[in-house]
Design a protein around this nucleic acid. Sequence first.
DNA 1: GATGAATGAGGTTTCATTCAT
DNA 2: TATGAATGAAACCTCATTCAT
Lengths: 205, 205, 205, 205
Amino acid sequence: MPPRPDVSEQRTAQIIEAAIAVFSEKGFDGATMDDIAGRIGINKATIYLYFDSKDALIRAIAEDIFARELTDLQSARDMPAAAAERLTAFYEALIDDDAELLPLMPILYEFYALGLRRDDVRAVLSGFIRRSAGLLEAIIRDGIASGEFAPTDARAAALALDALISGTTLHWVYAPDEVDINAQLRFAVRLVLRALASDDAGPGG
Amino acid sequence: MPPRPDVSEQRTAQIIEAAIAVFSEKGFDGATMDDIAGRIGINKATIYLYFDSKDALIRAIAEDIFARELTDLQSARDMPAAAAERLTAFYEALIDDDAELLPLMPILYEFYALGLRRDDVRAVLSGFIRRSAGLLEAIIRDGIASGEFAPTDARAAALALDALISGTTLHWVYAPDEVDINAQLRFAVRLVLRALASDDAGPGG
Amino acid sequence: MPPRPDVSEQRTAQIIEAAIAVFSEKGFDGATMDDIAGRIGINKATIYLYFDSKDALIRAIAEDIFARELTDLQSARDMPAAAAERLTAFYEALIDDDAELLPLMPILYEFYALGLRRDDVRAVLSGFIRRSAGLLEAIIRDGIASGEFAPTDARAAALALDALISGTTLHWVYAPDEVDINAQLRFAVRLVLRALASDDAGPGG
Amino acid sequence: MPPRPDVSEQRTAQIIEAAIAVFSEKGFDGATMDDIAGRIGINKATIYLYFDSKDALIRAIAEDIFARELTDLQSARDMPAAAAERLTAFYEALIDDDAELLPLMPILYEFYALGLRRDDVRAVLSGFIRRSAGLLEAIIRDGIASGEFAPTDARAAALALDALISGTTLHWVYAPDEVDINAQLRFAVRLVLRALASDDAGPGG
DNA sequence: GATGAATGAGGTTTCATTCAT
DNA sequence: TATGAATGAAACCTCATTCAT
């Protein structure tokens, strides 16, 4: 914690923002501290006043990004609406964020790759995935409780939905011409909803 | 006709194998040519007799790995069995390959990340994803033709299944304790099969 | 306004000086960045703060050296004296600079060789040669205008004089025992002066 | 001396020829043994059957090239003609060899540069320069003996002529548009001949 | 808080040279 | 005689990190 929190916090945020942009473009290793500093017109050394190391910066970014993503999911969960509607709302928010989300994809995969090698990053990612599925599960559980969905393995369904979403995003990124992301995500949700509505016993059965 | 058997192909394969192992462990950037050479007890410079550059080596690995993966899928497609059975067989092969597949995951995400920045890698990945979905689609289409599945958008279903598989693998890798990969994949297939069996119009509808 | 005086220019000059010495001794290819850095007790990487690459450094040296040489010639041209005197003064300065000039010879030939392969270096050399002959030509032209020399092809005479000087320098460097550089240069100038004084039509005739 | 001289000599010559071409194009350091071997379709290692090292090859080339040049000069000296004619014949042969000589210029300067650092090369070059001036001197001396030229310092005149020739060649190479090599060389010879014809005492006087 | 200057460590790539065949 | 394969040594260049100002 640097002495003057007001300025510091701004700078911290500014650096993180710049770093996200640069890392997205060049990858964690391809990007240099100079690239990041240059993007906001400060000196490379200044970054070290706010972050201990490049690794620490990367870790901070992981926390920042995944916290933001969770926020979206959380507000979907907390919407006063039927469960099916809330799930739909969630993926629609995802798509609408198109302009925001797409540029994050490179860094996302960068994190998936890095997390398998760095424990601190792995922890952040694991937590995110767990919580992400947890939020979807909560919505599904609400739907079951309210009788909107048939009783089923909410956890498995949540995992499947989450998997569908991230898998579809991958298609979107790597074969954009072939995938109508919007239709495909809608299809995915419907797929899961139908399973929930039926009496399927889920993977645990 | 040189007296000695052509050792080139063996060396090439040997280097690729070593490189896969090292890249998985340290990432493309973290791994050095020395690491790779050291792993098979040759000199760093020898690698350059077989690959023009580190980048070329990475690219060769991409082709190698994804070709192997496709082979598995292809043999599933070509099995003389009902479509549902063939889909099931495919993901079961995936799981059985556990010991082979799991160590490849880091490199896979490494490729996903890199592909968004390097065109040659991107081309290999795009092709893989496209062909992968194409093979699943073929099986599904067979099922529809044989009356095993209800008429539906085979492409969308294939994409969904493919997405489910890669998304589930991600869970598996990052939250292994929470995910029974076997059950979860079975669940995924059943999910899609049910959609196929019904009269749902798919994402295009 | 940084508190410290701008040390950049000094460093730049220091590096160029060291590089000239090292390049003279070992040739462009034989010399390493480490050699150069070591000579002034700095780290190799520091050189890269001032020059983009070894090639850029070499190019900077070309500009530096040839600019210096031209300065000498220019001051000879601008002397308030008869043309013949000014020409004589020039080669005498050349000889007096003995201690400075001789060590530069290796690097000069290095440049002659390199310039035939590298366009940026070639441009510097071409310009130098052109301007060098141009300055001599100006002096000769003055002499003709003042009636000191007979009307003749001033350009051809200048080129001949320039050629004589560089050719003689070559002898000097490679057969120092056999050539009295001082006498030989004086002879060369006299040779040209006599041609100028006569009514010879020059090479164009 | 390899066992079978017939094949060996051919190979040796073939390698030298290839090396001259490659060295001219890329410089001594820029050229690799592979470049040279590749140019005649042999294996790099084969060169080592004929030359001990790259340095030895370079030295052999120096001897080869300068011997050839001297041959031209020698035949000019031995022509049954007046001295003035023989000098003229010499520079004319030089110009006619245009197509042969011009491509050798890069390697020539390469040698001038290298000779200042490598004793074996320096010895070859020194000898060449000395002998070259010696041949010109012989012709001039003949001219003096026959009364064709006025008595003068033949050595100084020869050196001046030699210097003029090599200096002019430099202009030619670096400012080809500005120099009519043919006219300029003729001018140079005339310049010297006039000096010889007169009663000038030369530099030694 | 900020930076210009510097560096140590290291990575990719190149290549003359060797040697078993 | 010829070569495919291999390598040790080294060079250029980069960059995260430090520190005096």
